[in-house]
Design a protein around this nucleic acid. Structure first.
Lengths: 188, 188
DNA sequence: TCTTTAATTGACCACTCAATCAACAAACCG
DNA sequence: CGGTTTGTTGATTGAGTGGTCAATTAAAGA
């Protein structure tokens, strides 16, 4: 009997290893061998399951994005008005999504999306969803939800960027405070 | 001796070629040979003048940064109050500094600075200078200049990021409007 | 049959090196 | 002195070299 059901376990291990290695190295120039070693498998297996190095990293980013989506979905029900915004903001800067390796992976993903079509598509979908979530949440509390959503989106990206660049440990609280300050200022 | 004084000309050509190639390819993974060809010289000469591929790109970023500094210095004298802020914002999103290749080079520079100490130092200096400029300009018009400078800096970075990611041509006007809207909202 | 690996390959690229080229000036000459 | 030669040196390049790594292959292990 073959070790049945190994695939999802190996894949998950490789995805986590990829986030970890890329995030802590700060670059996509980690070798497949490094990622595989960190996941406890051989480089060939990584290719077997994902087909290419790019696909490993794209799967990792999909994983990060779906984590974020879950955080939001988990917090939203039963909230309304200004609270809904706070939920999205908190999810953005909450512990699992705002770890240093993750933020660093995001930065590299941004750069990759200039070059890799699939990354660009993925990012576009993510941005659209975030924007739409923000607009819906803003509609009851702002008289120009689209414009604020745009600015808010840019601000969140900027805070992520600066968190990635900072050598200090990420500070979710400060980030949340900054963004909420902006919202308090701008909301009618 | 050969044509004397070739060095600064070649260096400038290489720097421009580097911005162009890296910016339009969207990645640092352009070969030295590509950059050299675009500058009309041999790869060996590029190494002769700059020592390494990284140094070529770092010189290119220094050039971009000093362009930005000049834009600011050119606009500041004789202005005060809210106007000073507008000058810095305009310089950020003005034609020479907000071209698509330049913005794209910035994104790659951010990613590089996670890995390359010299890039990190350079970026730190730049950020500190920008922050200090912003605080000085904010002091007369805001009751919490540091906090606003932080947010404003993040917002500008975010707008840059989104401009880099967008395939559409960069729109300096829209960027300036967004940032100025924020300022109008937040200033007392 | 599904999973896993060791071993290998093939391509690519940063960087080096030895050699050539071209311009200027000092030395030399008639 | 005008002209010619020659030494010096910055500028420039073609042709490697060494090393890296993604991806493939073939075969073992469960």
């Amino acid at each position: 009997m073959p070790k049945l059901g190994a695939e999802p376990i190996r894949k998950a291990a490789l995805i986590n290893a990829a986030i970890d290695q890329v995030g802590s190295a700060g670059t996509l120039d980690v070798t497949v061998a490094q990622i595989a070693r960190a996941a406890g498998v051989s480089p060939a297996l990584a290719h077997h399951y994902f087909g290419s190095k790019d696909q490993i990293f794209l799967a990792a980013m999909r994983h990060i994005m779906s984590n974020f989506g879950e955080s939001v979905l988990l917090g939203l029900p039963g909230t309304s008005g200004r609270r809904r915004l706070a939920v999205i903001v908190s999810a953005s800067f909450g512990a699992p999504n705002f770890r240093h390796e993750v933020v660093s992976a995001w930065l590299n993903f941004y750069a990759l999306s200039l070059v890799n079509d699939e990354a660009a598509r993925l990012l576009k979908v993510y941005h659209r969803r975030l924007r739409s979530n923000l607009i819906v949440a803003l509609r009851p509390v702002s008289d120009r939800p689209e414009a604020v959503a745009e600015t808010l989106g840019a601000l969140i990206d900027g805070v992520y960027l600066r968190a990635a660049l900072s050598h200090a440990p990420t500070n979710g609280f400060a980030a949340v405070r900054m963004v909420n300050d902006y919202l308090d200022e701008v909301l009618t």
